[in-house]
């Protein structure tokens, strides 16, 4: 589930508020997005992929992270921010990850189970 909005990185562009398919965020009074409906988060990582400044972190749990979990601690997560966007290949100067897509190998395998 979505756990962290980094106030330091966020540029208040509202993209995450717009793109989240299950409407998890609200725009806060100061312009920062607020995780208003965390229980509706379906852990689809779409907000991470779309955030232009790598300010969001979706924790690897289908429920809320336990209290005190490192997955809610911005400092501990530094390297994890923006990881998915990097792989999807979005952002200036990057190559779309789909250029290296290899899904057809696995589809082939399903069509003719060995």
């Amino acid at each position: 589930m979505i756990e962290v909005v980094s106030a330091e990185r966020c540029v208040k562009c509202d993209v995450c508020v717009k793109v989240c398919p299950t409407d998890v965020f609200d725009r806060g009074a100061d312009g920062l997005p607020v995780i208003a409906r965390q229980s509706d988060c379906q852990s689809c990582f779409m907000c991470e992929a779309h955030c232009p400044t790598d300010a969001l972190y979706v924790a690897p749990f289908s429920g809320p992270a336990p209290d005190g979990s490192p997955h809610t601690d911005e400092a501990a997560l530094a390297d994890a921010f923006g990881e998915y966007r990097r792989i999807v290949g979005w952002g200036r100067g990057r190559t779309p990850g789909s250029r290296a897509d290899s899904n057809h190998i696995f589809t082939e395998r399903i069509r003719s189970p060995r």
Partner: peptide
């Protein structure tokens, strides 16, 4: 390369 988000929860 086929479905990168498959690995995110594992890696994390």
């Amino acid at each position: 390369l086929a479905q990168p988000n498959f690995f995110l929860p594992f890696d994390r």
